[in-house]
């Protein structure tokens, strides 16, 4: 596949020095886009899985704690009688405080503040429970209850994530196209710079593939070199972003860090870029030479 030696002084022209740095820049950008895409994908999948079969029932606070307890018990009774429900449990006050802390500040939520009671409902996998019907039934028995199936919120969030993902994919495609375009340009220029030598090779009986192999080998080597340089710069950037994100998280964002499979995908970037460069160079040479004598 690669040329063991080159008959053309491809590495010595100015383009040969410029191409790896351009590819390095492309791979750097591609690494950031890909990392973002992978993280969003993981996040979306986790939320999808984690919230798709849960409901939250909210019970408006009554005048006295005794009344509250009664209302909770009645609601739990109804929920537990429904076949599709696996588990229904009151979220205790301590956790409720924790969840509210980011908004109200530490100690902001006190016993004096009338808080709704929340019941966490876990559905059996695949069970279809009509949230609206459930809400009507609960409200009839215990006025002041509301059912939230996270559907609207989750749907919006996931739509947002998918949009950003599509953008990242488009960015990756554009980077691939830009790389291919650059390789087409440098290869064509190389063909005209080395026109004389290539003509001699032809007259000696070289096939187009012989010439193409030399350009493809060069493009592969440069793609790999540039790709590795780009990745070397991308890794500290990604680690830095990860560190900042971890400091900001404070329970708002789910755990966002790149797993081993993500790093493996990133490590594959230079290979993909080098392969794009090699194939593009080969096709360009074959196509250009076919127009010569």
């Amino acid at each position: 596949m690669w040329a063991r030696r080159s008959d053309l002084p491809l590495d010595h022209d100015a383009l040969g020095r410029f191409l790896p740095w351009l590819i390095a820049f492309m791979v750097y950008l591609a690494a950031l886009a890909l990392a973002g895409m992978l993280l969003l994908n993981t996040m979306a999948a986790r939320w999808d899985r984690g919230m798709g079969d849960t409901l939250t029932v909210q019970i408006a606070p009554a005048d006295t704690p005794e009344q509250d307890a009664l209302r909770v018990r009645a609601t739990l009774g109804i929920l537990r009688s429904i076949p599709g429900v696996a588990r229904a449990q009151l979220i205790d006050e301590g956790r409720l405080m924790d969840l509210l802390e980011p908004w109200l500040g530490p100690g902001g939520a006190t016993k004096d503040l009338p808080l709704p009671r929340l019941i966490d409902v876990e559905l059996k996998p695949g069970a279809q429970v009509d949230a609206a019907a459930l809400a009507t039934r609960l409200a009839a028995a215990v006025p002041g209850t509301a059912v939230d199936d996270h559907g609207v919120w989750l749907e919006r969030l996931i739509r947002l994530i998918r949009t950003v993902e599509a953008l990242a994919t488009a960015v990756l495609l554009l980077i691939g196209l830009a790389t291919a375009g650059t390789v087409v340009f440098t290869t064509r220029t190389g063909l005209s710079i080395h026109h004389e030598a290539i003509e001699v090779l032809h007259l000696i009986g070289a096939q187009d593939t012989y010439v193409a192999r030399q350009f493809a080998g060069r493009a592969l080597a440069m793609g790999l070199r540039g790709g590795v340089i780009g990745l070397v710069f991308a890794v500290p950037t990604l680690l830095g972003i990860g560190y900042l994100a971890a400091r900001m998280q404070a329970g708002l964002l789910p755990d966002v860090s790149l797993g081993p499979q993500h790093w493996a995908a990133l490590a594959g970037l230079p290979l993909v870029v080098a392969a794009i460069a090699m194939v593009t160079a080969r096709l360009t040479v074959m196509r250009t030479l076919a127009r010569m004598l």
């Binding site: 053309l8 004389e196 001699v200 032809h202 007259l203 000696i204 009986g205 096939q207």
Partner: peptide
């Protein structure tokens, strides 16, 4: 053409050696 050209040896007037 390559197959035919391989049967032909040429000494070019200006040599046309590859200088590198």
């Amino acid at each position: 053409l390559p197959a035919l050209r391989r049967r032909i040896g040429v000494v070019f007037q200006d040599f046309r050696l590859l200088h590198h």
